[in-house]
Design a protein around this nucleic acid. Sequence first.
DNA 1: GTGGTCTAGACCACA
DNA 2: GTGGTCTAGACCACG
Lengths: 238, 238, 238, 238
Amino acid sequence: MATSTEDLFLPVNVDRASQVIVDQIKVLIRAGKLQPGDRLPSERELCQRFNVSRVTVREALRVLETNGLLTIRVGSHGGAFLTTPSAERLGVGLADLLSLAPATAHDVTEARFIVELGTLPLAVERATEGDIAALFAMVEEAEAALKAGKYNVELSAAFHTRIAQCTHNPAVEMLMQSFNGPLRMSLEESHTAAPMGEQGIAEHRKLAEAIQARDVEGARKLMTEHLNRTAARVLPNS
Amino acid sequence: MATSTEDLFLPVNVDRASQVIVDQIKVLIRAGKLQPGDRLPSERELCQRFNVSRVTVREALRVLETNGLLTIRVGSHGGAFLTTPSAERLGVGLADLLSLAPATAHDVTEARFIVELGTLPLAVERATEGDIAALFAMVEEAEAALKAGKYNVELSAAFHTRIAQCTHNPAVEMLMQSFNGPLRMSLEESHTAAPMGEQGIAEHRKLAEAIQARDVEGARKLMTEHLNRTAARVLPNS
Amino acid sequence: MATSTEDLFLPVNVDRASQVIVDQIKVLIRAGKLQPGDRLPSERELCQRFNVSRVTVREALRVLETNGLLTIRVGSHGGAFLTTPSAERLGVGLADLLSLAPATAHDVTEARFIVELGTLPLAVERATEGDIAALFAMVEEAEAALKAGKYNVELSAAFHTRIAQCTHNPAVEMLMQSFNGPLRMSLEESHTAAPMGEQGIAEHRKLAEAIQARDVEGARKLMTEHLNRTAARVLPNS
Amino acid sequence: MATSTEDLFLPVNVDRASQVIVDQIKVLIRAGKLQPGDRLPSERELCQRFNVSRVTVREALRVLETNGLLTIRVGSHGGAFLTTPSAERLGVGLADLLSLAPATAHDVTEARFIVELGTLPLAVERATEGDIAALFAMVEEAEAALKAGKYNVELSAAFHTRIAQCTHNPAVEMLMQSFNGPLRMSLEESHTAAPMGEQGIAEHRKLAEAIQARDVEGARKLMTEHLNRTAARVLPNS
DNA sequence: GTGGTCTAGACCACA
DNA sequence: GTGGTCTAGACCACG
């Protein structure tokens, strides 16, 4: 035959079929062909499109769901929807990984210092009037919740996340969420945390004031103390 | 009314069978009942233990694998093995999420600044003789690779990760890996990056020297420039 | 092996959404948060509270209704009301189950012997003047009904239930109702019973007299004969 | 008109459609057209047969399931299967009803006395060699479990149920199960039961011996003491 | 009626 | 004997 047999025989695809599907969908997402909010075809239709069984499609969807790329809703108008991205899943993954890792609570807190203190200057610099108003509103909400005996770690986490939002940088926001999401919760769960107190909220208020005053150094100092204090709660022996 | 019916009825939340299995295994990991390196029973045996079908077990394993908690090997001595944790998977997740997010490359670089600059002081403070020797060794390896035309982004990423390792804090290390893993690669892939140059390696060497000299401020300045330069490569219009 | 994987993996048990709701409401009942006579919120409101569809709520209510825990009334003042408990539903369940079971009419009668004869001593011991008067009143009512040709198995069952009521123990009462409710009816329906006769009512009167005289042994004997005779009617070949 | 209008107008069927289906299936069961182990047609087929919607069929199946007449299994070979009857469901119903009723634990215990003591003579009379061997086997199993720290209320309940089985009367057996099933468990759960002890098992052994010796009076006495002792555990103030 | 979820049992390729 | 895949058919839930 005229042509040599070189390059005729391509390596067979050793990947899992489900992984191929996952990659293909990720490419579509990266290319912007699929946007947040879009709905994927039904499982049964995807079977036909990819020419695989339903089980394989489901495995692929499961992976994408785990990666936080889509959520699956049941019901007649259900299906697989691309998510507006959130770092929550990432926080879960981080928490899981650290559980398995040799990282101590002290290690994690130190990493959090890096992120929180690094974020602060950007937040102080870029916070709008609206941002600052929102921060104060959250403080007041927290005070009300405290009186009602409903103050919890979630409200505290939301405040820290809101500070990150002041940077108007979604990547930074996600980074912060990773630490103030499930990870923080699992940290505090595992220790019998003293109930979040008045003092925590008071410090939040002072932080908001420092950001309003564009006082980077003051904010850094406040945040350092604040974190040290909360860190001390989960790490009695520091 | 004697008792109001408010708050009596909690929203129901029916988990998937596979999710229940995932959670159960995560608990076992957190509790230390399952250690890195351990092998889970075979899929078929897990079916019997959990009293579910094989597909369901497989979905659960797929999720855990995606979360980086275990790796699956085929073959007669294969099975699902708990991983020594690594942040690689996390980086993949982060990259995926940012692909979907409105985050620009500039945003991501800014987040990386926070992490890299925040890590540096700890690295400078705690780097051992061995750490510093390793850093220099990597620089030399890079120089050799460059001559051989084999220098690539992976080697550069490894250097940054090695700096984080100097903090001797696994959580910080993971944080750094998240940015210098698949994420960085996907960032640079999407742009036609000029080949990593001599200058990059030279800056790495100077960074190593600053760490050896315990010169925090010098190191900060060097890293800032280094990152700015690489950032400029992926962001011509900054 | 360091840690065996035995007993680590518990069988998963995923409940239906409707079952979760059922359980939740049962807990509220057991805890006394919901009392007999209370009205549950409307189906539509329950949907929102539980965050499920209406069909699911309806299935849950249907189960609770079947268990005799609530009754559903239609109309503008309708809704789901917790019942004052009655053993009627239980009797239905017992009857259904025995229909399906390999239990013969003889078996059931034997079980009834146990309950009726076991109840008698308590009834004799604790019957008040009022109880005894009520028993005699029922006998006379039965005699009148017989003359009018309206005597039926229900009236007879009521007499036996009333005896159980003399124990002033609601649990015993329910036990008796289980046998003298739908079960007895279904037993007798299936055979062409000779109409309840004079003799049956006469024996009831004697039983009442024995109870009045606090004559346990006499009552036992009477009841034994009475049951044997009725049993013979449904079991010609005993 | 020639004919009077009497009896022309029958009451309209006020029953729920689902209830009609339930009744129809119950009739088939009573008539023996459907036997334990039989599988009903699939939901979709039943829809067509009854000419109703799936929701209606599902409600009917849910009711029948609640009544313990059938169990529903998912999966490829799933469906609705007629159960081999068991009194477990009945016990659940009884427990629920008593939770709602004004019955105290003391009331329930008294009812249990009636059943247990009434059953004993029949068991003594009819127990076969095999029955007796089984009773002793259970005692030994219990002793082994106790040593392993695994003795629980279930094993104790099983012993009492096994005694009822000695009567070779399925109706009596069910009656006993009703009390020694979920009801007993809920009774003991609600009180902090002292762990079932050596003494309980010893008494079980003596009971088995009395049955072996066909000693009705001895058995009665033993059972009375046994029940009194266990009753005292849940009723400290008797 | 349309979706997601689960099951049982089978075949294949691999180490 | 392991994981990887497939088929066919059932229940479960939503609108």
